[in-house]
Design a protein around this nucleic acid. Structure first.
Length: 441
RNA sequence: GGAGAGAUGGCCGAGUGGUCGAAGGCGCACGCCUGGAAAGUGUGUAGGCGGGGAACCGUCUCAAGGGUUCGAAUCCCUUUCUCUCCGCCA
């Protein structure tokens, strides 16, 4: 949620910045007009309340002095204010809700360095701060080469008899998968490895969060009100709960409605959780294989920082996600998303795209975003500085990384001509020392 | 799911219709005291919103929402959460 006072002070910048983004339903001038009526409504109510309070005080004094006549006189006077207060409060609530509801559907303002553009075609490859393409590329694993046409993950997986879409469809329908045997273990190993890496080496605290969340939490991390169609809901009493589409929701909402001390920051949390997405609107996209599922596991990283620290934290979180792919030995590239391709709440987003030789292309495996105070305003998450000043925190989130997609990347990059899959060194301890799976014996 | 008890400031805790954003204590901050510290002592110590350059003023907030009343932390209703007992369960 953007700050109406900022919009008031920078209407041109607001309109210009959001012209780069899709579906922005309001102009600055409309929001400012809404704010005007909100504030005049507040002034009207408070004026009436002040008069009522003053008179009530006098009534108390009159009664204390047993002056019933005066008390009655004052009571008659204050009665006339009642209507004004009541209708004023209704007007005020309407105006406040109107402005808030408008602000809730306005996306975040991209940072200056974000490439302007309409869609992913305008994304720019990112080589690190002050980093040249050459040096950044040297630190990354190389593309593997094959003496045959590399297979896609579902070909190998089905041939192994350890990846089964038909059984999954019988149980749950389309966009589900069943993994079995060594492949199931490999999936688990990848998740464990990544979680351990972030906890042991990158300074995150491991969390087991709830997987069902309230609407309030979803408003905080901007799934609501605009993206309800992407979620699975389950009835709960008179209300409902949503299955988390990402652990970003519970982890970021850790700090909702709190004022943190500055020395508690940065707060770095990570969790390995299932994620549930209805994928409404994705009909026909990525229907083969397990690239796009209703349910998948993901390691998520979340950081809560001061406004000053969020930029550096974003680079750190990107490096933390990159480290996963470096250690797994998977070639990848980093893209800075353009204004047209960024998520609703992001100020700036880096996508990690893993090389998938079977598909002969790069595919998104992680997305690392800095949201500024956008989510903090929605959640009312603040930090009290050493000087006593209270400001909204900054929030960041990134996948570190999606487990299902990492499994795909391992399967395609480590495939062998005989249909087996070599196990990356860092995963072997998790695989009880297995160096290869799926080989014909 | 049933029965009961509760929810007050960073924490503990007083407050059953009037000047209560709220006693007292703890904690914290700053000062005094001290060679330094402890003890002692003094002062200060919530947030939102509106107005204002600021000092400051107004308003709202005692779990949340609604109601009664001239006036609600205090009375009534609904909801949420916590605790105890029973049932059930991993």
């Amino acid at each position: 949620m953007l700050d109406i006072n900022w919009i008031k002070a920078n209407p041109a910048a607001f309109d210009a910045a959001l012209s780069e983004r899709k579906n922005v339903p309001f102009k600055a001038s409309e929001l400012i007009a809404m704010d005007e009526s909100r504030r005049s409504a507040i002034a009207a109510v408070e004026d009436a309340q002040a008069k009522r309070n003053a008179l009530s005080k006098l009534i108390g004094q009159a009664k204390a002095q047993k002056d019933e006549a005066k008390a009655n006189e004052l009571m008659a006077e204050v009665a006339s204010l009642k209507d004004a207060i009541q209708t004023g409060e209704a007007t005020r609530k309407e105006a406040e809700d109107g402005l808030r509801n408008a602000l809730l559907v306005i996306p975040n303002i991209p940072l200056d360095e974000v490439p302007r553009g309409a869609d992913e075609a305008d994304n720019k490859e990112y080589f690190g701060l002050n980093g040249s393409p050459a040096t950044a590329a040297r630190a990354r694993p190389a593309k593997p080469s094959f003496s045959y046409k590399p297979k896609e993950h579902f070909e190998t997986g089905e041939a192994m008899g350890q990846m089964d879409f038909e059984v999954a469809a019988k149980i749950s329908g389309a966009r589900f998968v069943v993994l079995k045997s060594h492949l199931a273990r490999l999936e688990r190993s990848i998740g464990q490895f990544m979680l351990d890496l972030h906890v042991d080496q990158h300074g995150y605290t491991e969390v087991q969060p709830p997987l069902l969340v309230k609407d309030d939490a979803l408003y905080g991390t901007n799934q609501l009100p605009k993206f309800a169609d992407d979620l699975f809901f389950t009835p709960h009493g008179e209300s409902r709960l949503a299955l988390i589409p990402t652990a970003e929701v519970p982890l970021t909402n850790f700090v909702r409605e709190t004022i943190l001390a500055e020395d508690e920051l940065p707060l770095r949390l990570t969790a390995l959780t299932p994620c549930f997405r209805s994928e409404a609107g994705s009909a026909g996209r990525d229907t083969r294989g397990m690239l796009r599922q209703h349910q998948f596991n993901k390691v998520e990283m979340v950081a809560i920082t001061t406004p000053e620290a969020s930029g550096d934290e974003h680079e750190k979180m990107l490096a933390d996600a990159e480290d996963v792919l470096k250690q797994l030995g998977i070639h990848y590239r980093v893209m800075m998303l353009s204004t047209g391709d960024m998520g609703f709440g992001a100020q700036k987003t880096y996508d990690l795209e893993a090389w998938l030789p079977g598909q002969d292309t790069y595919r998104e495996i992680s997305s690392v975003s800095v949201c500024g105070d956008f989510q903090a305003r929605r959640m009312d998450a603040r930090v009290k500085g050493k000087d006593g000043k209270i400001r909204h925190v900054h929030t960041l989130n990134g996948s570190g990384v999606a487990v299902g997609r990492a499994l795909i990347a391992v399967m395609e990059n480590y495939q062998q001509e005989d249909g087996s899959i070599a196990i990356p060194d860092v995963l072997q301890p998790y695989m009880k020392g297995l160096t290869s799976i799926g080989a014909k014996s």
